[in-house]
């Protein structure tokens, strides 16, 4: 069948390369997003009025601008502001992936931090009081008492937004990152075997999304057993 032609033509390798790029990009973006989101959530909870306003603005900006525009802005716009030496360095070392990861990571961090914020709100207010009464400082009560419970509450939303992040890696093709969608288009252009090519990529994305959701459920169940 047509799928076999794909494999025979050696395109299997190309697909795998594309998948690798997708996974690398997704992981890098996700880690950046989570770190930034947690920091922002903590800042929002502990910081003064101006810090809170900054976080609100950050979130509003990143959520109201399309992911693609973030990618374009970082890759075409902000890269242009960097000193020329850095620009050349970036170009030589796969700058597209770096900028794409930053763009997707920061944009997703806005969604993640809102999810964490909802999770924190879902934690009973008595918890903060109790932990402070026991002598936890504000930072350590956040870290040891509030955030673990907030994470449990925020898990479904975080899983959903992780799936969204995973799918959004496809936007990076617009700046030439050779991730799965880019590779798919290339193979399709070369072979005209549109259906099997697209189907393979689609199946991978759906499979990836399902995996993420299953992992999420697994984590949720494990957290349940700990007496959440």
């Amino acid at each position: 069948m047509a799928f076999l032609e794909l494999i025979e033509g050696g395109y299997g390798q190309q697909f795998i390369k594309g998948i690798q790029f997708t996974l690398v990009l997704a992981s890098a973006s996700w880690m950046l997003a989570m770190v930034v989101a947690i920091v922002l959530a903590a800042v929002r909870n502990l910081g003064g009025v101006w810090l809170q306003r900054f976080v609100t603005l950050y979130v509003a900006y990143h959520r109201n601008v399309p992911m693609l525009v973030h990618v374009l802005l970082w890759y075409f716009g902000i890269s242009n502001l960097l000193p020329l030496a850095w620009q050349d360095l970036a170009l030589d070392h796969g700058g597209e992936v770096i900028f794409a990861a930053i763009a997707i990571g920061l944009c997703s961090s806005a969604y993640f931090t809102e999810d964490i914020r909802s999770g924190i709100r879902a934690v009973a207010t008595g918890q903060t009081e109790a932990s402070r009464a026991l002598g936890f400082g504000s930072v350590s009560s956040m870290v040891h008492i509030i955030l673990p419970q907030a994470f449990r509450a925020a898990l479904p939303a975080l899983v959903n937004n992780t799936v969204v992040l995973f799918k959004n890696t496809s936007m990076a093709m617009a700046i030439g990152v050779a991730e799965l969608t880019y590779v798919t288009k290339e193979i399709e252009n070369a072979t005209f075997l549109t259906f099997p090519t697209y189907a393979t990529a689609t199946l991978f994305y759906i499979g990836g999304s399902l995996c993420i959701m299953l992992i999420g459920e697994h984590i949720a169940r494990r957290l349940q057993f700990r007496g959440g």
């Binding site: 799936v163 799918k167 959004n168 890696t169 496809s170 936007m171 093709m173 969608t181 798919t184 288009k185 399709e188 697209y198 990529a201 689609t202 994305y205 759906i206 990836g208 999304s209 399902l210």
Partner: peptide, 10 residues
């Protein structure tokens, strides 16, 4: 929901 919008466009 499991497919990127870009793939859907293609």
């Amino acid at each position: 929901r499991g497919t990127p919008l870009l793939m859907l466009i293609f």
